[in-house]
Each structure stands twice: as structure tokens, then as C-alpha cells.
Amino acid sequence: MSSEHDRILKDLAGSMIDMELEAAKAGVVEALGAGVPAKRIIEEGLGVGMEHIGNRFAAGEYFLSELIFAGYIMQEALAILEPHLEAGAAVSEGRVVIASVEGDLHDIGKNIAGSMLRSAGFEVIDLGVDVSPERIVEAAGEHGADIVALSALLSVVVPYMEETVRAVKESSIGGRVKVLIGGRAADVDSARRMGADAYAHDAWEGISKARELMASIAK
């Protein structure tokens, strides 16, 4: 049985790596039918495939379109799995409130980042675009967020990003919530200047940065 489960999970990871949407969905259904626990399907099937694609993207061997499509396959597969996840069975990596800052209507980068974080096991609450600092602080408090992830594409909205970081840090949740920033308008220096806890260069790096932030909270 176990070797059969292993084979199914290996094939599922392979379908992810080959970016075969229908094969990946069929693989999830097959795994469920064979009695593989949903959590194992995510971690040892889909997650392995996603990790492979992400690492090759980080190494410059895969392209953005492939990373995006892999994230889409992951979401489609998770939709099949969702009813089969027992309450509490899926241990969340952390809870992230994500938004494009006030003044910025761009959502492509934010959507990709959110989708990557979801695929890595984070719970993601997406507040959308052009979100005020007050709304972000309020939502982070309401949802008990571990991380506030902010995206800004245009330099013109950098002041709003700064204001948002300050609002989070000065709020009552500022002591426990970590701020992760990304997007074209941000970089390591601006993150430091604004007082953000981390900067992610791209959506894939966002996962590792979010994990580092979670580790720092655990300490």
C-alpha cells in the first residue's frame, strides 16, 4: 500500500513539474481514492513538484509564466482537496494579510505572491488593491495575522507604503505582526528605511522570507 501511495505521489509531483494541469488534478483524485491523506498529498505530491519548479525558477532555469502556471495548478488541486482536509489537519505555515498599498491599483505581482504563499501552505487573506493603512491594520488585527505583506509597483506610491509600514508598527499589533514588502518600487534598502521586517525580490523568495519571519516569531 505504502509503495503504491509513494508511486501516486511521485507521479503527482511529476505532473506538477511537467505542468500538466489535467494530469495533476487526476493525480489528486487518484490519491484520494487510494486513501492517501490530504495533508500528505499536499506535502509529498504537490509540494514536492512546486518546490522543484520554484527552485529552478530561482536558478533562472524556469520562467515566470511557468511559475505562475504551477501556482494555478496548485490552486486547482487544493480546491479538489479542500473538502477532504480535516479540521486542523492542515497545519498552516502562518497567516498572511496581503495588499497593494493605497494609491496602487496594480495586482499582478500581489496575486502571484499570494498564490505562491498559498501553495506553500500559508493562509492568505487578500485585501485587494489601493488599501488604506487603517484598513490593513484593522484586517491584520481581525484575522490575527502573523505577517502583513505589502506590494507596490510604482515609485509614486512609496510614501503610502512607508505610511502603511509605520501604521502597522505603531498600532497595538505592531509588536507581534511582521511586515514583508515587495514589488518593483521596493528593495532591501527601502525596506530598512521604512522599518519593514523583510523584503522579497520576487514571489518565490516571498515564501522563504515569510518562513524566516515565522521562524523569528516562533523564537
Binding site: 505542468m19 494541469l21 515566470l64 509564466s65 505562475i68 502556471f69 494555478y72 495586482d107 499582478i108 496575486n111 502571484i112 498564490s115
Partner: peptide
């Protein structure tokens, strides 16, 4: 509808 949707459509 955006680069993300375009990329998904390219493959799907």
C-alpha cells in the same frame, strides 16, 4: 486581465 491570467491561458 493581466500577465498572470495571460500566462495561465498560454498553457491552459
Amino acid at each position: 486581465g493581466g500577465l498572470d491570467r495571460f500566462c495561465i491561458n498560454l498553457y491552459a
